[in-house]
Write a protein that binds this DNA or RNA. Sequence first.
DNA 1: ATCATAGTCGTCTGCCTGACGATAAACACT
DNA 2: AGTGTTTATCGTCAGGCAGACGACTATGAT
Lengths: 252, 252
Amino acid sequence: MPYDPSAFPPFAVTVDLVVLTVRRHALCALAVRRGEPPFQGRWALPGGFVRADEDLSQAAARELAEETGLRAHDPSAPAQDNGAHLEQLATYGDPKRDPRMRVVSVAHLALAPDLPAPRAGGDASNARWAPVEELLQQGGYGRDGEPVAPLAFDHAQILADGVERARSKIEYSSLATAFCTPEFTVGELRRVYEAVWGVALDPRNFHRKVTGTPGFLVPTGGTTTRQGGRPAQLFRAGGATLLNPPMLRPEV
Amino acid sequence: MPYDPSAFPPFAVTVDLVVLTVRRHALCALAVRRGEPPFQGRWALPGGFVRADEDLSQAAARELAEETGLRAHDPSAPAQDNGAHLEQLATYGDPKRDPRMRVVSVAHLALAPDLPAPRAGGDASNARWAPVEELLQQGGYGRDGEPVAPLAFDHAQILADGVERARSKIEYSSLATAFCTPEFTVGELRRVYEAVWGVALDPRNFHRKVTGTPGFLVPTGGTTTRQGGRPAQLFRAGGATLLNPPMLRPEV
DNA sequence: ATCATAGTCGTCTGCCTGACGATAAACACT
DNA sequence: AGTGTTTATCGTCAGGCAGACGACTATGAT
């Protein structure tokens, strides 16, 4: 088949972001309110068009910075620089997923420490951190008793896929540290696992496991008491990215 | 930002396929020879444009059927129907990845049992199964002493990502059975693991592990001697898709 | 002083894995 | 028929790791 510009249909390509964080013991995602049709007024994942000269990961990093102020953590950079972890998630291209035109969306997953209130073009009322459980329940009622509208487009599916990716990836990688501040305690890391998996973990076995895995945690020497109780050692993320043997998610 | 068709650049969207199989104890991928520029005469992954009314997975299944005659195995279908496993891999969108125009390629990964010789539009000389090791070595020499040209476009990267996905996914899922015929022996399954991982596994421990994992293998009652030696029990793939605990890849 | 809270260190038991011996059932020779 | 080769299958044993859980420590609150 020789090259013929008319031989392929034109597509719009966007990036959508699943930005996850842990707030108040719950796994939360960033949602923005749509200002125009379709799905006007409904919550959606942040995202936008890929520009003509942009790589997909660049577009995702740009959108992340615009929505949250976070710099994407370059995977090739040496240490945790308070940037967010960013990785490609999956691509969604159902012909009917956007009623206006043919849009292929390359979803990305970002993991960030707990942040100050989000901003969406400076308008705080149009962006919020919402528990993923709340965003994913269809036709139910939120904490405040108001009916919950499902996310716009196929964003509920995208969010569900992103949450599942995060849940499985913290098993066999050190990615859970991306939810923590640069220095953190074992207890804080345990609460990340508990929030993401939605389970309770034994603090003693968890402590043994993470401190015994080479390269996972590096003690900084300091201690903190910000959780109350006995002061805890502070750690940074070590160089290891793959955990072997992995963390084990308790049976269902 | 109101809807404005001129507000986004048009993209071409393609699907590329990493089709893997195990032949003669080696992990092999399907490669097709390019008939026109760019990269004319070079080997590439099979693929093609997504049509205007097609979903991404439909386009991938169509390309797979066109290149190999394989039907994609519908994940919602109940049993192994000799179709290939097909799943989305990742999306590649570097602005310069195709010198002609802006192309975003949604790569898919297909796993198939050993097949008769491939066909590419009926022309066998333009399609072949090649060991992935051979396709991925840059600037080396193949088995026949001829210099090896790297794959076209960014297809070496895509192939490497697909191989890595397959290698890690057979650890924690029953996906290795997708490389086998509908009925197979424990030894044949073991040779799949050995070819994909490029290691030797202990036959006794492997047998104990796979037969002891609930839902992985279902005995069919028959036996076969096609490998020589003592006749071996035949099995089908069981209903389990996730293996817990996983198969362990030996240390590097 | 006492209590509550959170962190850290140990112990014990059961399960899984890797290493490897032994036996079984076919085929290919001589 | 006997012998060797190949592959399959079962069994044993020691080491390591995970879950359950007891004990002690160091802080702040009352």
